[in-house]
């Protein structure tokens, strides 16, 4: 069996092994490649940064553990950014698997910034019904969520004395693992005229460019790279953030070496496989001609 046939019939377990190796190695021996930022993420950052201190930001964290590595770092960084700017955070999820992850994030970052639930932020929890929930929020937040995640009545909370519905919020960010971005655009952002950004898994990022192009989204952050970019922007603007606990800063940044390595491997293997494919094809044609 020559090289070309070998490559074309390569056992996929060998590829699995290479991928595993290329992920583990850079994690153990980091190279720390410099991370560039893209305009899509910069515009999310500057939108949040440009809001006057103490604005109300509604964060929908619509993901579950399966996309934790991609989106949880973004949630941490966004929360840190909001609290850094003293924004009031209204955080909720449309995914049943989400609450426990958000709970981790908001409690940890909240404690770090000394923010208290009910006054500086409110974790509304989960409600099923996607669009029905978002639609409800446009009429009344406390009506849709009579109690928060901890089963405390929301109507009494100081944070909901000024804000009654989505329209009163200054910004919406949807951190989404699925198709909830459309729901937020269709039922909240567009009809209520509240600007909005989306941080989504890299899978869906390309799909949201029509909305970004049309100005319906201010910015898009795609996957772990987007989160890493946000971290970089945050660290540039707020130097004390860098020292603000390892869990928050640089969680996504760490993964970028491995990301580059595996991408390079996949690209090279595709090119190699294609070259072999062409050689094999040519050979076949020649054989046919000779026969």
């Amino acid at each position: 069996m020559d090289f070309v046939t070998l490559i074309l019939n390569l056992d996929r377990k060998i590829i699995f092994g290479c991928v595993a190796l290329l992920v583990v190695w850079p994690l153990l021996v980091p190279i720390q490649m410099p991370i560039g930022t893209t305009p899509e993420v910069r515009s999310i950052f500057s939108a949040i940064d440009a809001l006057p201190n103490g604005s109300d930001v509604m964060i929908a964290a619509d993901y579950d553990p399966s996309s934790k590595p991609e989106l949880q770092p973004f949630t941490y960084s966004l929360l840190a950014h909001c609290f850094e700017k003293d924004h009031k955070v209204h955080i909720l999820t449309l995914w049943p698997g989400g609450p426990a992850l958000i709970q981790q994030a908001i409690e940890e970052v909240g404690a770090q910034y000394g923010k208290s639930s009910g006054t500086d932020y409110c974790f509304l929890g989960y409600k099923p019904g996607n669009a029905a929930v978002v639609g409800g929020l446009t009429n009344s937040i406390t009506g849709t969520y009579p109690t928060d995640f901890y089963n405390r009545p929301t109507a009494n909370m100081p944070i909901y004395q000024r804000v009654q519905r989505v329209k009163d919020c200054d910004y919406i960010v949807d951190i989404a693992a699925g198709a909830t971005v459309e729901v937020w655009i269709a039922f909240a952002s567009a009809p209520e005229n509240v600007p909005m950004s989306a941080a989504c898994t890299a899978v869906s990022a390309a799909g949201y460019y029509p909305y970004y192009q049309a100005g319906q989204l201010d910015g898009i952050s795609g996957g772990m790279k987007g989160s890493a970019e946000y971290d970089v922007l945050l660290m540039d603007k707020y130097p004390n953030f860098k020292n603000g606990g390892a869990r928050i800063a640089g969680n996504a940044v760490k993964g970028m070496d491995a990301q580059s390595a595996v991408h390079l491997f996949i690209v090279l293997s595709i090119i190699l496989a294609n070259i072999c494919y062409f050689i094999a094809n040519k050979r076949q044609r020649e054989e046919r001609r000779n026969a």
Partner: peptide, 10 residues
């Protein structure tokens, strides 16, 4: 591809 690799890295 990027998304999936991130998950594995995580």
């Amino acid at each position: 591809v990027m998304a999936r690799i991130s998950l594995l890295i995580g």
